[in-house]
């Protein structure tokens, strides 16, 4: 069976006044239908840039490498340039949910009109039909009084409700792939729990593939089937969620897990990862994690070791430099 999404050797660079920044370095990922791939990492690790590359939503100064491929339905969407082709992925086959729901709705257009607009663009529907689909979808995500909400503006809804409306909007075109970029980060824990449960139900019901970006490993543990851990533009470890969280091999993954306050063990000290994430302008040569690695071997300190994932157990891939580090 072919994969729903296949990202091969993706490099993303940004041209800025201060120089060329490497945002993504040689990332390869796959996602099957009905599965949730979680991407975790600190801010600046390239999680969002990876997702945005799929829809080509990165800004104008972005440079993709020529041999990179992002394959959806046997088509390399990275080579799409015409408006019609892009329309097929942006909102058609792929939908995206953003972190801040207030910033992603147009403030002066009614929510209903925004929902209808995208349905008319991507699906062959009549206006009345589109309205019915939208209201059904709003009902489906648990918005009470859907017909009333349909005629309201984004500022009239609370944070949790806005995020539900955003999910309803993203799903109404029945995309094959959903990109969720920190969809629960701005919400309170109780609302976060509601939204996570809702997303789990909907993913199952529609059998779509989801890329779920978050920095919260607890959320990942609850929703994802597979996890990719990113650091400074590189995937340093990936594999099934159980394996990554219970048997992490990379010192960065272990560092993230140790830094997390554990509600079941209040005596455990909080262990931050030493040092700061380096600026992308002076990205370390060789292994990108070597400047913060707790026990770097002599070789990687010099920056002579190339990065690259090796398979340590079925489906569990770790960067070869760090597989034996502390």
């Amino acid at each position: 069976m072919s994969h729903l999404l296949e990202i091969k050797n993706l490099d993303v660079k940004f041209d800025t006044d201060e120089g060329r920044i490497i945002a993504i370095d040689n990332v390869s990922l796959t996602l099957d239908q009905g599965k949730v791939l979680g991407i975790v990492g600190e801010s600046g690790s390239g999680k969002s840039v990876t997702a945005k590359s799929i829809m080509q939503l990165n800004p104008g100064n972005t440079i993709y490498n020529d041999d990179a491929e992002i394959i959806i339905d046997n088509e390399n969407v990275l080579k799409f340039t015409s408006k019609n082709d892009l329309k097929k992925i942006r909102g058609g086959k792929v939908s995206m949910i953003f972190q801040e729901p207030m910033a992603s709705f147009a403030p002066a257009i009614k929510i209903g009109n925004q929902m209808i607009e995208q349905l008319l663009l991507h699906k062959e529907t009549e206006k009345n039909q589109a309205k019915q689909i939208s209201i059904d979808m709003l009902n489906r995500v648990g918005i009470a009084d859907a017909e009333k909400r349909f005629n309201q503006y984004a500022f009239e809804l609370s944070g949790g409700m806005r995020q539900r409306a955003m999910i309803a909007m993203a799903l109404s075109t029945m995309p094959k792939l959903l990109l969720a970029d920190e969809p629960t980060t701005a919400l309170d824990v109780t609302i976060q729990a509601q939204v996570i449960n809702l997303m789990k139900d909907i993913i199952k019901e529609y059998n779509m593939g989801v890329i779920f970006i978050t920095h919260d490993l607890g959320v990942i543990a609850q929703v994802a089937d597979d996890v990719a851990v990113m650091y400074l533009g590189s995937v340093v470890e990936r594999g099934p969620v159980n394996e990554i969280l219970k048997n992490p091999k990379h010192p960065y993954t272990r560092g993230l897990l140790n830094a997390l306050p554990d509600i079941n063990n209040l005596d455990a000290p909080l262990k931050p990862i030493p040092g700061n994430i380096p600026s992308p302008l002076d990205r370390p040569t060789g292994c990108v994690f070597r400047t913060r690695c707790p026990e770097p071997t002599h070789d990687c300190k010099e920056g002579n070791i190339e990065m690259g994932l090796i398979e340590v157990s079925p489906g569990h891939w770790v960067d070869k430099c760090c597989v034996n580090c502390g």
Partner: peptide, 24 residues
């Protein structure tokens, strides 16, 4: 109790659902 149960567990095998508070 609801707040505590809403903290997503770091253990993927512990998929107990949070006590969902209705509404906001």
């Amino acid at each position: 109790k609801a707040l505590l149960s809403s903290i997503p567990s770091i253990d993927p095998e512990n998929k107990s659902r949070a006590i969902e508070l209705i509404g906001e």
